[in-house]
Structures are given as C-alpha cells and as structure tokens.
Design a protein around this nucleic acid. Structure first.
Lengths: 224, 224
DNA sequence: GCAGGTCTGCACACGATCTTCACAACTTGT
DNA sequence: ACAAGTTGTGAAGATCGTGTGCAGACCTGC
C-alpha cells in the first residue's frame, strides 16, 4: 500500500516504450519495460507491477492474449494502447480485462493522467479515507479504530495488521503474508509472532472479528 | 451484486442528457437524470446509483463541487464529462474524486464502453472468486463452503479435496491423484485415506455430492 | 540512563486434524 | 449365487496447528 508504485510497460516500439517509461519515471513510478508478449507475461509475474501499460499490437502472441494471461495470474489494472479507430480490438480488449485504453497518438500528459486515475481508483476501491465494515470503523487518516463506537487503542503493528486484513474482508491470509505485510520482513521471523498480534486484536476488538482458518491463516470477518 | 445497475446522469443540456440516458437504458441500466447541481446531489442520495455521469459545467454550483458532495456521502464511481481542451477542470476533477472522464464531443459507444469498464472494475473489487456448482457454493478467497445456503465447516484437507474435484466437475479422479493433490504426498500413504475424507465431505455436504466409480475413484456430481 | 511501552520468540497445553486399521457392506464378473 | 476385490464405516492413536502466558529484546521520549 505504501512505497513506490510499479508500472510495467509492454510495448515493442522502442521509441514509444522509452518515452512512456521516462515520463512515468518522472512521475515517480518504478518502471519496467518488456518489448514482446512472452517477456511481458513473465515480467508481470516477476516484477509484480501495480499497473500494466500494454500495447495490443505485439510480436510473439498478440496483446489480447497477453492481457488475458497477465490477468489470469493476478488481478492488476491494465491500460491498453490501441491504434486509432480500431474499435474491434478496443472492445475485445475491454471484454478481456483491460481497465482503460488510449488511442495512438496520445500525449504523455494524458497517459500520466490515466495512470494516476487507474492507480488511485484501485487503491480507493478498498480504502477511502476510512474503512467501515459493519460496526468496525477504521479511520485511515487519523489511524483510529473503533468498534460499535468504542475506541480501541492499537499498537502500530496491530493497526497495520488490522488494516491489511480489513482491506481484504473475509479473504484468508497466510501467516507469512501477514508477517511480511504488517510486521516488517526480517530473516528468521517466526510466524507465531502473528498469533500474538492477532490475540491482542481479538482482546481489544472482540474475539469474533478475526477468524482462524486452520492450517492456512487468518481472515477478518465483517461483523454485524 | 446482481440486479439492474443504476446510473445517475447529471447534465444540464437536455439533448445530451437524453441521448446519454437513452443509450444507457438500451444497455440495460436503470437511469435517472438531473439537470442541475443541487438536484444531482439530492438524487445521488435518493436514487442510490452505482455510477454517476457528471457534466462539470452546471448551473447552480459547479460540477466539481457536485462531485465532491456526491463522493462525501457515499463512495460511488464518477464519470466526468468535460469540454475539450479544458485541462484545468479535468485535472481538478480527477483530484476531487472523478474516476474517469470523457471530453465532448464523445460518441455514445465510447460512453457506454467506459460505463461498463467502471462498473466492472468496482464489482471486481468487491466480489471475490468463487466456484458455483448447482446449490454448492465455494468461496475461494474466504475458503468457505455452503450448500443450499447452509455453511459447512471443512478441514483443510477436505476443502482442498473438494476444490480439486469441483474444478473438474463430474470428471473421475483416481485415489492416487486425489491423495497427491489434496492431501500432501508422502511415501507409503494409503489411498484409503482418501475414503475417510470423502466420507467426511459426504456427511457434511450430502451423500449425493460425490459419486463413487467402482475400481477407479471419485467424481463430484453437479447437484441441483 | 531510565521508565514505559511495544515487539518478538518460546514452551506448554489443548484441541483439531490426519491417518490407519479392522470389519461390514457392497459391486463385479463368472 | 459365489468368490474376489472394492468401498463404507467407526474408532483410536499419532501428528500437527493454534491459543496462551511470559520474559527478554528493542525502541522512544524524557
């Protein structure tokens, strides 16, 4: 959630690719570039981007197939680049899973604007300024948490852990994932540490809030 | 999640408003129209739209203010309509909370495409992946299983076994395959172990769910 | 340095889960 | 109908995962 946003650019035209990459770097993104479909798919998996800018006209297999494959492994917003007037490609692209598109030629300014919009949207989709799940209220700007109007004092780690879970309500998260995301990651960290923080959260917010999934991890249940 | 999607159109130009509304109705949306800012804000609250199409040039108070007020009460995606070249309005609009924009003049086709994209995105953020086979429902992200609405508590192995079968409905799987995939693989494991888990699944979810294929293995039948 | 708060790792106990076994019930081919 | 092989069943022991309390390490502000 914090840290630098990563953008993967998949575009065979070196000139365009470099212009786009340069602009995005100037905007403060971490940028990786792939020049064909297969390496695009591979880098989407390895680089773990927050957004993909994808040209539909690509050597190797075509852009729509790339889009499909990228989306198959991980849900990541895709900004599609299309040739002007090619409405067929466009509609198929949107159907396949692209989230937005630009027709060539486009200005770098416009590209940057759309990238920002897409990223802001996905982050807002889960978090606006506050998270409200049933009677649980998390104010993200003031880092305050309350349940049924009763405020609870959480330590930083407990808060981060709770927010991470609350952003993915009822989705089960492995201990390792929670340890890496909420507590920092350091070698030799015991996943039992997570238990301690979960225990603290349960004590402060109620035992029913966090569900244990035996052999897997924890999930936050939306309380009523 | 299901049911008709509601779209609110806030646009003072009657001609444009009606064209947009007509096209969106043709796309299967339930559409409401407001012709000025105050009524737009009021209808956003009363109509409860899933998406708002908002013209930034409005009588009453201006479109950006409307956008702010609509977003203040409820998080709803906003598609902004701007005059061509008015980049200031555009950027401010995006900052204020619009999710996408179209510059006039735009084609109805393009409008419809963007509306679909926006709605698909928000629904994707909310809905999680799941397997649905007849009255059997498997929520993959929360690892919850229910049949005819009745939730069943499954152990990790039972769950993995069920998912493996459910991903290949009515295809017969050998015990060895099931043993390897669902339960971990270890030397000297008896394939009778699978029987125990199948038995547990039948007890928890109904005996008709899993079919025995004598001499071969098991298959999950799609229940009705 | 000190005090208070926080994070982390550990050990133990308990409960949940997995696996196996023996025997009953069943299916299949003759 | 019979025999051979296959599957269903229930129980019991072994194993694994989790809850819990505690103590030392660590950080932070004074």
């Amino acid at each position: 959630m914090t840290g630098q946003r990563r953008v993967l650019v998949v575009e065979d035209d070196i000139t365009i690719a470099e212009s786009v990459a340069a602009r995005l770097r100037a905007e403060g993104f971490e940028v990786a570039v792939a020049h064909d479909g297969p390496s695009g798919v591979a880098m989407a998996a390895a680089f773990g981007p927050d957004l993909v800018v994808l040209d539909v006209m690509l050597p190797g297999y075509d852009g729509l197939e790339v889009c499909r494959r990228i989306q198959a492994s991980r849900s990541v917003p895709v900004l599609m680049l299309t040739a002007r007037g090619d409405e067929t490609d466009l509609l198929v692209g949107l159907a396949v899973g692209a989230d937005d598109y630009l027709t060539k030629p486009f200005s770098m300014r416009e590209l940057a604007a759309r990238v920002h919009v897409l990223l802001r949207r996905v982050s807002r989709a889960v978090s606006s300024r506050s998270l409200e799940l049933g009677d649980l209220l998390i104010d993200l700007s003031s880092r305050r948490v309350s349940r049924s109007g009763v405020e609870a004092h959480l330590t930083p780690t407990e808060y981060d852990l709770l927010v991470f879970l609350a952003e993915r309500p009822s989705a089960v998260q492995a201990r390792e994932r929670l340890l890496a995301e909420a507590c920092g990651w350091h070698e030799g960290a015991s996943s039992r540490t997570v238990d301690s923080h979960v225990k603290a959260l349960r004590r402060k917010l109620g035992a029913d809030l966090i569900r244990t999934v035996h052999g897997v991890g924890y999930a936050l249940e939306v309380p009523r």
